[in-house]
Write a protein that binds this DNA or RNA. Structure first.
Length: 467
DNA sequence: TTTTGAGTTGTTCGA
DNA sequence: GTCGAACAACTCAAA
């Protein structure tokens, strides 16, 4: 009787799982395995919120497996060594996994291949790296032509998706350790983990928000974004399912505006693929600027200002509200990510890598490819980056995307009674208005740590100096 | 090889 | 208040 190991990494689901599908085709029995890899768990790019989401996701998956007569085997140690042991213990003759492309994942899988017969099946991307290239075979480094090329391929449709198997037969006598962490109370977590929760979130998004996404996604004060990123991060949702569902929404959109919104959301999924491809083809972006000349940029890197940014005490309400939400919930609105990233790199002139690391430590959805791409875009150091003179003004961004200050007040209670016309620039309140609002600048809420106009000029010179 | 058109998300200034 | 231009040149992708 042949046994196949299904090694889970970023594909925590039973439906539309190409590695599970390949394992089922290969073997009569399947051994689903998660390996607690110390090299990842001890990384400075990992944070507690993402880990507890992962543990909850593993519990949910184990539950789904048990309903089908199987279970999740969890081991701790070096993946190559553990897989070799598991192979001996179970008599498996093949290991299947969904391909993953970060530089670490690539090196790890190379080592694993020397120990066990590892076969990759499917991808964390909708269209995997290598499938979308320029006519000369080189990878794209500009989004728009990449996107056009992506759309020229046949998109995944719901009929293409693999169904979850009804039964999975699993060898009984293989040792497992406990899934770490405690079962979280649902009210503690803004993102309930697991494939069922992921599918529910997708269904909710498809009911309405996707048809208003074009405008709704930019409003900080409403929940207009998909909030699917944590699920896509761990593969609790199949990215192909997300794309297929978006295609269906596009086809059934009621009007032009709704169709445009579905299209805009599809573009976000394509951005996700784009940055997966960039990291796979240009692994140096993990530690350097995509455009090397920006490694010479004269960052200020003031540690006190970095701390103020991290803790949400810069004196710019929209920045501080977003940073406090990040620490509290492990999530931030996409628009807010751009605002705080622009502020860190362009107003404080702090190295984008510091921000990238902080995001990875706190985001539930923290993903090496997307996070790196987003930071390099904001810093102007990346592929297809924002021009360096595009510097967000935190006051006008606040007014535009949080006009009534609802988002700001939710996270900065000290600004509760500040009138709307000062909610994004409270330091300009006259003394009696400050007293009336119970918000003395410099006491109840910090004065701005930099003057935006001066900071902007300083940054323009620093970027111009890079040749 | 050369040429051409284009390039996510913004801000500021002056008419 | 609104509008268009400037911001800066460079690189990419394809014809």
């Amino acid at each position: 009787m042949s046994v196949a190991i299904w090694w889970l990494r970023r594909d925590l689901r039973l439906d539309d799982n190409p590695a599970l599908g390949a394992a089922l085709n290969h073997g009569k029995q399947i051994l689903p395995v998660w390996i607690l890899d110390p090299a990842l768990l001890d990384s400075p790019y990992v944070g507690e919120k993402r880990l507890s989401f992962l543990w909850a996701g593993l519990r949910a998956l184990d539950h789904d497996l048990r309903e089908r007569g199987s279970r999740l085997v969890v081991r701790r140690g070096d993946p190559a060594t553990e897989l070799r042991r598991l192979q001996t213990e179970s008599g498996a003759d093949a290991v299947f996994a969904v391909e993953d492309y970060s530089p670490y994942a690539y090196r790890r899988d190379q080592r694993v291949r020397q120990m066990v017969p590892l076969q990759v099946a499917g991808s964390t991307a909708i269209h995997p790296p290598g499938t979308i290239t320029k006519q000369d075979g080189d990878p794209y480094v500009v989004y728009s032509p990449f996107m056009r090329s992506w759309k020229a391929l046949r998109p995944p449709e719901e009929e293409d998706l693999l169904p979850a198997p009804d039964k999975i037969e699993t060898p009984v006598d293989v040792a497992s350790v406990e899934i770490p962490g405690k079962p979280a109370r649902p009210e503690d977590n803004p993102f309930p983990a697991g494939p069922a929760a992921a599918r529910a979130r997708l269904a909710t998004f498809l009911e309405q928000d996707i048809y208003q996404y074009d405008t709704g996604r930019n409003q900080l004060d409403i929940a207009g974004t998909s909030r699917l990123s944590p699920y896509l991060r761990f593969g609790m949702l199949s990215p192909r399912r997300a794309a297929a569902a978006t295609g269906r929404a596009w086809a059934s959109a009621a009007d032009k505006q709704a169709r445009k919104s579905a299209e805009t959301f599809l573009n976000e999924l394509i951005w996700r693929d784009f940055y997966i491809h960039i990291l796979a083809h240009f692994p140096h972006v993990r530690s350097s600027s995509f455009r090397r000349k920006y490694d010479d940029l004269a960052w200020e890197n003031n540690e006190d200002q970095f701390t103020a940014w991290c803790t949400g005490e810069t004196g710019y309400p929209v920045v501080d509200a977003a940073m406090r939400q990040l620490r509290a919930q492990g999530w931030m609105h996409n628009r807010a990510r751009m605002i705080v990233a622009s502020f860190l790199t362009k107003d404080l002139l702090i190295d984008w890598r510091w921000g990238e690391r902080w995001f990875m430590q706190h985001l539930v959805d923290g993903d090496p490819a997307a996070n790196n791409g987003g930071w390099q875009w904001a810093a102007g150091t990346g592929t297809d980056a924002a021009p360096y003179f595009r510097i967000f003004n935190p006051v006008s961004q606040g007014r535009k995307h949080d006009p009534d200050g609802e988002f700001v007040r939710r996270w900065l209670p000290e600004l509760q009674a500040v009138p709307n016309n000062f909610i994004h620039n409270p330091w300009e309140m006259p003394a009696d208005t400050q007293a009336g609002a119970g918000c003395i600048i410099g006491e109840d809420y910090p004065a701005p740590i930099v003057d935006h106009r001066e900071a902007r000029e300083r940054t323009l010179s620093a970027y111009k100096a890079v040749v």
